[in-house]
Design a protein around this nucleic acid. Structure first.
Lengths: 234, 234
DNA sequence: AAATTATTTTGCTTTAAAGCACATTTAAAA
DNA sequence: TTTTAAATGTGCTTTAAAGCAAAATAATTT
């Protein structure tokens, strides 16, 4: 009972497909895609499950995370409007991570075979995709660096810088455009909820943030960026 | 004074270009590529420098690493015969990491423009490249997980599993096909040389390795893999 | 071969971060 | 509103890993 939206009529102008795929290719994807709605907390795909295709986020916030033998979850990537999910398993048969909606999310699903024929028939699309992959790869490698070199203060600051980069800040409320628990922030930063609290205390003293109830206002995004500046190029 | 080898005459059969590029496209790359020899320790490219193109490793061992504000270097990737270097900066203008030869290395250099025209004229090549990127991305994301969830014992074991995966073990000598100092192993594992020594002590007691002078023989590769098994899928 | 230098190993100390338990606050349910 | 449950915050303890310095070993140079 879902109402089928064609790509050309779709309002999501950040969608990777809409921005990089045109004419016949777009019509082809459009006719074969499925779109799904996910509620906050829903698992979009789960690690170990057989991969069937690729997801494009039309609207929403998603975390890609992994379970662990010791219980702590680790977020390996955050994704938002226009981003691609599940593309890392291309050529493989299983998802390696869990993708979980952080807010109500609208995603498009494209089967691997459709995706492949689009790439082969439209080299321009394939090349754009390559650029996207290159960017993701660079970001992820930087993340390896961050996790191995930053101390807790820096990791928590970086988590907010990253969250701001992907989801942005509401200009009125000054809060992140996604609601996260201490535990969820810890899973991004690679630490524990207690440590997140302690760092937030410090950040508040330094007037970088302001907490009201459970809301966190970002008062000085640049100040947070300065904490991790040395780890970035230029 | 370098002797120019055409791709079709090149002995390196693991080269990504040779395996995935044919006919005119191969001839085109062949005519425009440059090949370079690097000695062990040479910097192939350096972070912050302007990127001009992409490297294909014909033969050799390379680490991609980053400097840090606190002094510790972190290796974000190991690469060997047939692998690609510098592809993560596609669409960008600066290298984000240092690529350093771990042994004498023979690489091919292809300018970005040549690379781009090859992708656009051969969608099959672009798609294969996409699969390569997907694999790299997955591996790198797993590495984020490892660095944030493993303890020292596991990190050091994983370093050897990774080294084995990329460079392999000499079947006679049972040593890795690349010589590394404690510091260099530590930079892969994300720890200090002292901790590496301590873990090697343990591994030796457990008959997983055997040290003779500075050589490390891998007696039981599977045993090392078992230490990190829980972090892998399946 | 002897001397010098560099690397690795080892014991010990320090430290940063995790873990725990309990208090407090906030949110949800009755 | 009151009660219950969940999440957050805080002080204190524990622990894993880093850091340091000296000793031992290996590699280089003279």
């Amino acid at each position: 009972m879902r109402s089928r939206i064609e790509c050309k009529d779709c309002a999501s102008n950040k969608c990777f497909v809409k921005q990089n795929c045109f004419g016949e290719s777009l019509a082809n994807i459009s006719s074969k895609k499925n779109d799904n709605f996910n509620k906050k907390g829903d698992v979009i795909f789960r690690e170990g499950n057989t991969m069937r295709g690729i997801y494009f986020i039309m609207h929403g916030a998603v975390k890609v995370a992994t379970s662990s033998p010791i219980g702590r979850e680790q977020v390996v990537r955050l994704a938002s409007d226009g981003d691609i999910l599940g593309h890392r398993v291309l050529g493989n048969d299983k998802y390696y991570f869990n993708a979980i909606a952080l807010s109500d999310t609208h995603v498009c699903f494209v089967e691997t075979s459709v995706f492949k024929e689009t790439c082969l028939s439209s080299p321009e699309f394939a090349y754009r995709l390559l650029l996207f992959y290159a960017l993701e790869l660079r970001r992820t490698e930087l993340r390896v660096k961050y996790h191995s070199q930053m101390n807790i203060r820096e990791k928590v600051a970086e988590a907010f810088v990253y969250l701001n980069e992907i989801f942005g800040i509401d200009p009125d409320k000054k809060t992140l455009n996604v609601e996260l628990s201490r535990k969820e922030i810890a899973d991004i930063a690679g630490t524990t909820p207690e440590q997140v609290t302690r760092q937030l205390n410090d950040f508040e003293e330094e007037k970088l943030i302001l907490r009201t109830k459970r809301d966190i206002q970002i008062l000085n995004a640049e100040g947070l960026e300065n904490i991790v500046r040395n780890y970035k190029i230029n």
